[in-house]
């Protein structure tokens, strides 16, 4: 690879520039929209004529606040709780898969696979029916539970892959020193596995944050409605006015945390996604 000609190198750099443009243009567009005044939204150009913060003040303190702020709170709570539960459960499962030999190991992995490809919409109706009978409809736990179906499978794979890469001799050494399997797991493996667990948590959080189907189907008010669902029920300054500006501003706000995570933990996330997914 060291033997790259100057021309070749230039070409790859051009490619890199293209990637950056590709990735950032649509995001830049929605940011630009969010700074357009209501009368400026139809200016048909990429940039606002005069940038204004009115859309942001609208969703944080104006008419939209009543809808947006609770939704933001719900999203944060639901996604964090779902991520934590999924990562903890997946951590145990992944340890068992990577380290232990037990009948049904393949079954666990296969069912994780099956759940990952399961059409989400199929889950919605029966869950909706069950939830309204047992009072989980439009509640935080009513969203956390189905979110586990989204976050658990990928957590199990990603972490199994990480755990396989851990030097297990150290665990065996600990066991020889008299520690039980459990102690070996806790004292030796947990610190080694922490980066993998952390990466998995970020990926699981991304997936939970992205959900839309459960959000619009299993909630109905600001009691539990997450942001993506709230976005689609935003309203303009009057009943018939399109809430383009407010939606754009809210979209930018919900994009900030995930983009920050991506920026800060880029290396880990790339490693997590590639490790967990393909390993020959």
């Amino acid at each position: 690879m060291g033997a790259m000609s100057r021309k070749e190198k230039g070409l790859w750099y051009l490619g890199a520039l293209f990637i950056v443009l590709y990735a950032l243009l649509p995001v830049a567009w929605i940011v630009s929209l969010s700074f357009k005044a209501e009368s400026d939204l139809a200016n048909r150009s990429f940039l606002p004529t005069n940038a204004t913060g009115e859309n942001y003040s609208g969703i944080f303190s104006g008419d939209g606040a009543e809808l947006f702020l609770p939704a933001l709170r719900n999203s944060v709570i639901v996604c964090l709780v779902a991520t934590v539960i999924a990562v903890v459960l997946a951590m145990f499962a992944a340890y068992a898969i990577a380290r232990l030999d037990f009948p049904g190991k393949r079954l666990v992995l296969t069912s994780a696979l099956a759940v990952a490809v399961f059409p989400v919409i199929t889950m919605v109706t029966p869950l909706f029916n069950l939830w309204r009978q047992i009072g989980l409809y439009d509640t935080i736990p009513g969203l956390v539970i189905p979110y586990l179906a989204l976050t658990l499978p990928i957590s199990i794979w990603t972490m199994s892959a990480f755990f396989r890469g851990i030097p297990w001799d150290m665990e065996q050494a600990a066991q020889v020193d008299g520690a039980t399997s459990w102690q070996a797991f806790r004292k030796v493996i947990v610190p080694l596995a922490a980066p993998g667990v952390f990466t998995t948590a970020i990926i699981a959080f991304f997936i939970a944050w992205n959900d839309f189907v459960f959000g619009i189907s299993l909630t109905s008010t600001s009691r539990a409605q997450p942001v993506p669902a709230a976005l689609s029920s935003f309203t303009g300054s009057s009943y018939f006015v399109q809430p383009t500006g407010a939606i754009s501003a809210a979209a930018v706000i919900v994009t900030i945390p995930v983009v920050l995570l991506a920026l800060v933990f880029q290396r880990r996330i790339v490693a997590g996604l590639t490790n967990g997914a393909v390993k020959g």
């Binding site: 990637i19 590709y22 990735a23 950032l24 649509p26 995001v27 929605i30 991304f206 944050w209 992205n210 839309f212 942001v227 993506p228 976005l231 689609s232 979209a251 919900v254 994009t255 995930v258 983009v259 995570l261 991506a262 880029q266 996330i269 790339v270």
Partner: peptide, 11 residues
């Protein structure tokens, strides 16, 4: 490249 991956589908 992680930015589009992280952005919500709805957005």
């Amino acid at each position: 490249i992680l930015v589009p991956y992280a952005v919500i589908t709805v957005v």
